[in-house]
Amino acid sequence: MSEKLEGIVSPAIDNLLNKVDSKYELVIFASKRARQINDYYSALHEGSLFNNVGPLVDATVDEKPLTIAMHEIDQNKLQKHATE
């Protein structure tokens, strides 16, 4: 059986941690983006998409917003901004 493992295995956690300063920053960064993706999908059902940005990577219906956010981080589709 050669199943393709998904979730935290893909993208690899080591690759994700190289893109941020700490694992805590990764959690916050990914969770904020996942909330934005979730808001996008909610707005999609309501018919108003003007305030929300959808997934920046190819995503299937089965993927959770957090998984999509992790793929966006891994593919350098997102940039973190320094907080003031």
Rank of each mutant, 00 (worst) to 15 (best):
S2F: 08
K4M: 08
K4E: 15
E6L: 12
G7V: 06
G7T: 05
I8G: 02
V9P: 05
V9M: 12
S10W: 00
D14E: 14
D14V: 08
N15H: 11
L16F: 06
N18D: 15
K19D: 03
V20Q: 12
S22A: 11
K23A: 15
L26T: 04
L26C: 07
V27W: 02
I28W: 09
F29Q: 02
A34H: 06
N38H: 10
N38Q: 14
D39A: 12
D39F: 01
Y41G: 04
Y41K: 10
Y41N: 13
S42T: 09
A43W: 01
L44A: 12
G47Q: 06
L49N: 09
L49C: 07
F50N: 13
N51Y: 00
V53M: 00
V53W: 02
P55S: 09
P55R: 01
L56M: 13
L56V: 09
L56S: 12
D58N: 06
A59L: 01
T60V: 01
V61K: 04
L66W: 03
L66A: 06
T67W: 00
I68H: 10
A69S: 14
A69P: 05
A69K: 03
M70D: 03
M70R: 12
E72Q: 13
E72G: 11
I73Q: 05
Q75N: 14
Q75G: 03
K77F: 09
L78K: 04
Q79T: 11
Q79Y: 02
Q79C: 06
K80N: 10
